[in-house]
C-alpha cells in the first residue's frame, strides 16, 4: 500500500511484475533499466540463482521530485516465477499499488498462464488487497512467436476482472514502456482517488507521468507520437 509521509512530503509506490516462470518479467525490468535515465533510477538489483532464474525478485527504484517538492519513489519489483517460490511471491506482493501481469502469449502456455493469474488473485486476497480496485495491466508478451494468441483470445483471464491488455515483445523492448505507462496512469488515478494526489499533494496526472517519462528514452514507442508529456 502506498506509503506517504506528510512531513517529508514523500510518496512510496510499489509496482509488481507478476507472471509465470519465463514469461519475461525480469526482461521487462532490464529493458526499463536500459531506457530510463540513470539520474532518476537506481541500480537494478537482481537476486538470481546460478542458472539466471530469479530466486527472490528483481527490484529497481525510480525517484523524482515534483514541482511542488514532493519526492516520489517508485519501486519496480518482479516475483520469482517458478512454482516452488509461492511464498516469496506472496511476500513480494505485499503492499502493492499496481500490478503488471506478464503473460506468455503462446497458446501452449495458456493453461499455466491462467493458473498463475488465478494464483495471483488468490495471493492478492491473502495480502488483503482488493483486485477489483487494484490497478492491473496484462502484458501479452512474446507476441512475435508463431503460436501467440490474439488479444481476443485472452478472454480466459478476464472472467473475474477485466484489465487492460498491452501487447509486447519485451526482449526487443516493444510494449515495455507502454505497459508501464498504462499501469502508472491507472496507478495515479487510483492513488488520486485514495489520497488526493491532485487536491492534497498538488500533483496532476500529467506531471506525475511526465516526471518519469521525460527521463525515458521513448524512441520506437507509440507513446512518442501520443506525445510524451513535456
Amino acid at each position: 500500500m502506498v506509503q506517504f509521509n506528510n512531513e517529508t512530503r514523500e510518496l512510496s509506490i510499489k509496482v509488481v511484475y507478476y507472471g509465470p516462470a519465463l514469461s519475461g518479467k525480469t526482461t521487462n525490468l532490464q529493458e526499463l533499466f536500459k531506457k530510463i535515465d540513470p539520474k532518476v533510477r537506481g541500480r537494478l538489483m537482481t537476486l538470481d540463482t546460478k542458472d539466471d532464474r530469479t530466486l527472490f525478485f528483481d527490484m529497481m527504484p525510480v525517484f523524482f521530485r515534483t514541482s511542488t517538492g514532493v519526492k516520489v519513489k517508485l519501486k519496480l519489483y518482479t516475483v520469482p516465477g517458478q512454482v516452488m517460490h509461492e511464498s516469496t511471491r506472496r511476500i513480494v506482493l505485499q503492499g502493492s499499488d499496481a500490478i503488471a501481469f506478464v503473460a506468455d502469449s503462446r497458446r501452449s502456455e495458456a493453461a499455466s498462464t491462467l493458473a498463475y493469474w488465478n494464483n495471483m488473485l488468490k495471493n492478492l486476497e491473502a495480502n488483503g488487497l482488493d483486485y477489483r480496485t487494484l490497478p492491473i495491466v496484462i502484458q501479452m508478451n512474446k507476441m512475435d512467436l508463431p503460436d501467440a494468441r490474439t488479444e481476443a483470445e485472452f478472454g480466459d483471464l478476464k472472467e473475474i476482472i477485466s484489465p487492460m491488455v498491452v501487447p509486447a515483445v519485451a526482449i526487443r523492448g516493444e510494449g515495455v514502456l507502454e505497459t508501464l505507462y498504462a499501469l502508472l496512469q491507472l496507478c495515479y488515478r487510483s492513488l488520486d482517488a485514495r489520497i488526493g494526489l491532485e487536491g492534497k499533494w498538488k500533483i496532476s496526472e500529467q506531471e506525475f507521468l511526465a516526471c518519469i517519462f521525460s527521463h525515458v528514452d521513448m524512441r520506437g514507442t507509440k507513446l512518442a507520437t501520443v506525445g510524451a508529456p513535456r
Binding site: 541500480r43 538489483m45 537476486l47 527472490f56 525478485f57 509461492e86 511464498s87 516469496t88 506472496r90 511476500i91
Partner: peptide, 24 residues
C-alpha cells in the same frame, strides 16, 4: 551500500519465505 542492501534483502527474504512456507 548496494551490496549490503542486496545481501540483507536476500538473507531476510530467505527467512521470510521459509517462515511463510512453514506457516502454509
Amino acid at each position: 551500500v548496494f551490496t549490503g542492501h542486496k545481501n540483507q534483502l536476500t538473507a531476510r527474504l530467505h527467512i521470510e519465505a521459509m517462515q511463510e512456507s512453514y506457516r502454509e
